Simulated scan of single mutants.
Amino acid sequence: MAYKIEEVLDLKKWETLQESIAIATNLAIILVDYQGRPISTHSQVQPFCSLARKHPELKFFCEKCDARAAIEAVRMNEPFIYRCHFNIIDMAIPIMVDNQYTGAIMAGEITLRDNHDKLEQVLNLDHLESVQAFKCEHVDLFEQYPSLTLDELTKFANMLKDLSHYIVNEAIKKDFLVKTYKQSLTIRKKDDRVVTSTNLDNLEYVEKELKQSLLDKRLNNLSTKRSLKNKQLQPAIDAIFYNKQENLDLTTLASLCNLSPSYLSRLIKEEFGEPFTKVYTKLKISWAKKLLKTTDLPINQISDELGYVEPSYFVRTFKKVTGMTPLKYRKNSN
């Protein structure tokens, strides 16, 4: 699957973090795409660079430097520290997704106290009068650049590398989970869950809801086809469906399958992703929801139909699973 970094990252959140890092490190930072084009604001940009990037001719060279440095960083698979066409120190931290280059964190706009000339200059434009004239015209701004040692800059580069890996991995994980969760919602009724953008921003919520949705889908399949990956479970599942008014335990079900209760319990968890008690409870609640929607049976009768000893226990269980009482569920359904 191909990703564009601006589609995966939450740019507003990234820019807030980017600004904080720029202030703490004295580095100017910007996020660029694989062609070197900016996709975030430019944090703590130095006045000289700001003017250069707005210049109709010189801004092209700035982007060309960014693109060349980023490609070199990808080739090395490491942060690449270099000199730009103005002899200013910058670095490129590649952002890789599934081994594909999607963009880079460009940082720097500093001078070095040591090893300055040992760094590669990715674009030499000393022969261009416009470059030299611009530098001479704004020499006062050029002298305002913060200064670091190469060791300090290398440590910052490695920090940004680790940070970019973490952020991208988490962003892709969330992107995958949200898409899968949205797809899984097709098996739910509209009144079962209210999905908001706030909820989808919460990765823990999405993971929990996705797990629930996938289990609901398995239960929904069982209620119609009773299709199972592990056919050893078929006698137990059939018994549960044919005896909805009973409360069957693992020992009884295990004897039908010629299995031990502990082994049956393990197989059920492998099949549905949750322990037997949770699966059985949610299955009964799914039947209760169907009865509440499609019949006018009173709550105590539905409780009896599903093998609950006391209607009060059925109500508590229903509310624990769905977040509402059976009466409220029926009212919302209608």
Rank of each mutant, 00 (worst) to 15 (best):
Y3H: 14
K4P: 02
E6K: 15
E7S: 12
L27R: 05
I30M: 09
C49I: 10
F61C: 03
C62F: 06
A67E: 15
A67C: 09
A67T: 04
I71K: 12
E72Y: 08
E72N: 08
V74G: 07
V74M: 01
M76G: 10
P79E: 01
F80C: 01
Y82P: 00
I95G: 05
M96Q: 10
A104I: 02
A104N: 06
T111V: 15
L119S: 05
L123R: 03
N124E: 06
Q132G: 01
C136H: 14
D140F: 15
D151Y: 11
N158I: 03
L163M: 10
E170H: 09
A171K: 11
A171H: 06
A171Q: 08
I172M: 13
K173H: 08
F176C: 13
D191I: 15
T196S: 07
T198D: 12
N199T: 07
E204W: 02
E207K: 15
S213M: 03
S223P: 00
Q234F: 02
P235M: 02
A239W: 01
Y242K: 10
L248A: 02
L250V: 10
L250D: 03
L250T: 09
T252V: 08
A254S: 06
S265Y: 00
I268T: 03
K269G: 02
F272C: 04
K282I: 13
S286W: 02
S286C: 04
L292I: 00
K293T: 09
Q301I: 15
Q301Y: 08
I302W: 03
E310K: 12
P311I: 11
S312V: 12
S312P: 04
R316K: 14
V321I: 13
T322A: 06
G323W: 06
P326G: 11
K331V: 12
S333A: 13
